[in-house]
Design a protein around this nucleic acid. Structure first.
Lengths: 113, 113
DNA sequence: TCTCTATATTGACACACATCAAAGCCAAAA
DNA sequence: TTTTGGCTTTGATGTGTGTCAATATAGAGA
């Protein structure tokens, strides 16, 4: 499943109604953001200076099982919000700022004229 | 249930990790956006010139039952993305641009320095 | 090779949710 | 007051999802 093709051809923003296909693509990403744990994971990765966070750093921040964290990371990766890279025994996750930027632009209402 | 208290005291953005309470508040709104039908409804209201849309205008745009549309409108209203006003027999929905703007700011990653 | 540590996957379960039909509510008109 | 039209609420149902325990995989080291 490719990350975000539907979001790439994003409409101007809230300037004209989204068609069903566009809406489905964008909704996938918002649905991924619609969970408190995933939002916190994302903010941990996004606010990390080096840009990289290993899974163990994340699991340590929650009172949740390791498989649960792994599941949330997978969801965030599938919608194109995160990427991962394995180095030695550890897997490092990194933010995809472009995806976040597109969502931001989509929601940026241009001051009700 | 008040619309958006948790979002109002929104953190800078992805600059520091969200705590559990902040994440819960923001996630509520994103969850509301995480449905294709609700996204389309929102874009219909947002792109309407006058700013107002009556329910009958929305139901006409979907192949869904009227109660289903009413349900989605309620969800969007509960998280502070829409407001409604009854005039005569019709109910008009209107966008709350401030809420959208806060979300946009939250996701606006300041160009990975 | 065997073991140990770090992550991912699987299977199961409880709960949440999108949807519809039916019933209720509210305001205007008859 | 009764009826009609617009919208909401309720109840039921199938599907989706967050979570965990158990299991699997992958790499490093002994």
């Amino acid at each position: 499943m490719e990350p975000l093709d539907l979001l790439e051809c994003s409409p101007p923003l809230m300037r004209e109604p989204l068609d069903a296909e566009q809406a489905a693509g964008v909704a996938r990403v918002f649905k991924a953001l619609g969970d408190p744990v995933r939002l916190r994971i994302l903010s941990i990765v996004a606010s990390r200076a080096g840009g990289e966070v290993c899974v163990c750093d994340i699991t340590g921040a929650f009172e949740l099982s390791q498989p649960t964290i792994s599941h949330h990371l997978k969801v965030l990766k599938e919608v194109g919000l995160l990427t991962s890279e394995r180095r030695a025994s550890w897997v490092y996750y990194r933010l995809v700022p472009e995806t976040l930027g597109e969502l931001s632009a989509l929601l940026d209402v241009p001051a009700t004229v």
